[in-house]
Structures are given as structure tokens and as C-alpha cells.
Design a protein around this nucleic acid. Sequence first.
DNA 1: AGTCCAAGTTGTACTATACAACTAGAAACC
DNA 2: GGTTTCTAGTTGTATAGTACAACTTGGACT
Lengths: 146, 146
Amino acid sequence: MSAAESAVETIQREMTIFARRARASAGRMHPELSLVSYTLLGHLEERDGCRATDLAAHYALDKSTVSRQVAALERAALIERRLDPEDHRVQVLHLTEAGREILAQVTRSRRAAFRERLAEWPEEDLVRFAAYLERYNAGPAGADAE
Amino acid sequence: MSAAESAVETIQREMTIFARRARASAGRMHPELSLVSYTLLGHLEERDGCRATDLAAHYALDKSTVSRQVAALERAALIERRLDPEDHRVQVLHLTEAGREILAQVTRSRRAAFRERLAEWPEEDLVRFAAYLERYNAGPAGADAE
DNA sequence: AGTCCAAGTTGTACTATACAACTAGAAACC
DNA sequence: GGTTTCTAGTTGTATAGTACAACTTGGACT
């Protein structure tokens, strides 16, 4: 096997390990906010509000799934729905102040964990690793792990 | 923010994106073998058989979860249990021929997807990316995404 | 008006998971 | 050698996340 092929094998294996671990631990780390809820809140913050359908499309989730997630987040008072005056079918979702705070807090704690894990890495390696990951994720949709 | 800090941010964000996508797609890609089942079978192949408790410890799963996964894999005739003659509490799990085949098939298809995604990468980058991922995953347990 | 489409909700089912209570067998201890 | 303690695994129960299908409501387009 060429060096490139064996590197692809390793990348596959290590990405799989990462995904499995992330999945297994997501709920344990932040009981107050699942990985899915976290990414949904993050999306809302980034976009400054969006529709449930946009979330479903972006994360390849069924609209019923998003509907229930949104309902849970609203019950927890982390988001609020505002009826679109242009189209009464549409609910524009916005973070509440509490949602913004929880999101910031979870982001801080995740960031701290990553930072600790990467504490020993030289800056040069961090920058290159980050670039590789971005490049990998920016790749065509539909491939493995997509 | 220093280059190192911003690289850590990027790594966190991209790893999260990857984990979310992997989770969302795991079931769709290989309906015949979930991500968990796949990794369990892979472990069995690599170790040439092991105990349910070893799987639970290695993957940070509850023993009841492993017990049910193992039961499902046995029902599907992908693995078999052999009583340890030394210790009658222990069941040593082994891949069956069918299990070996399914595993090989899913591995091929996952490998093809990764290869396609990485097709444009120069060998040098593949090797470095693989090394970074290994280093990241080899890091101390208990950190984020663990 | 009537048809079709789009956004969201609800009913139902399934999978993965954890925790707790249990059984069966092994080991340790005195 | 019997009692206690530990280990491997199963089963009961509960929860989260997910999909699919059926439905409701509101717009859009003839």
C-alpha cells in the first residue's frame, strides 16, 4: 500500500473513532445541551434567527425532528418564535437572552476542553491541523460521514 | 487572538461539524450496519475475538448497551459467542464468516468514500493530516469529544 | 374558486443509550 | 469449606433522537 493509501486508511479510522467518541460523550459533557441543540443554537446565533425548515435542510434532519427540538428549546426558554408578518406559516426562531448565555457557557467549556487537549501542540501544527480539517469538511457533500 | 488560539477555535468547530454530520448520516450510509456495530465488528476482527466487557470499556459504553448490541449481531449471525472454558461467566465473541464479509464490504465502501473525498490531496498532506488525527485521538481521555 | 405547494405539528415506531436490579459464576478470606 | 465480595452478563425501564406518514394551515398561481 502506498503512503497515500495508508494515510487515507488512517484518516478514515481516526475520524471514525472521533465521531464515535463524540457521539458517546456529547450527552455526558453538557447535560443541559445536547450536541444537536448546541449546533442548532449556534446556527441561530450565527444567522441571527432563521426558520425551522432552514435548520432541517442545513443539518439534513427531518422537519418533524427539528419541530420537536425547537419545541424543547422553546420550553427551556432558550429560543423564541416570532411569526413572520409576511407569511403566517413561518416562524422565525431567535435566541433568547438565556439561550445566548447557555450557548456561550457551553462554548467556553468545549473550548477549554479542546484547548487542554491541544495544549502541548506547537502553533505551527495547530494551524496546519485546523486547515486540514476545514479543507476536509469543505469537501463535496454526500461523501462518507456526511 | 493569537494564531494558536484561532487554530484551536477552528479545530473545535470543524471537529464538531464532522461529529454532527457523522451522527446524522451514520444510519443512512450503511443501513445494514450501524456505526456502532461497525466499530464493534472491527474491534473483534482486529483483536481476533474479545469479551463484551472489553468492548464496553474500550468504547465507554454501558455493559447493557453492549449486551444488546451483541445480541443483535448474534441474531444477524455476524458474530458468535463461545463460552470460555476457563471461566464460565465469560463469552468470547468471534466474527462469523458472514460477519467478516459484511465488515469487509462496509469497510470497502467507507474507504471508497473517504478516498474520493481525499482524491485531490497531495500525498504529503494526507500523511500529515493522518498523523495529526492520530495524535489528537491518542490524547488524554476525558477531554472534549471523548 | 380551486388546485397545488410549503411550513410546521402530531402520531407512531425504532434505535441507541443509561441506570438499576438481578443471576450466575469465580475468587478471597478467615 | 462456607461466606462474603467481586465480575460478566442479562433484563426491566426510561429517555433522547430520529424518520416517515398523515394531517393542518396558509400562500401562490392559474
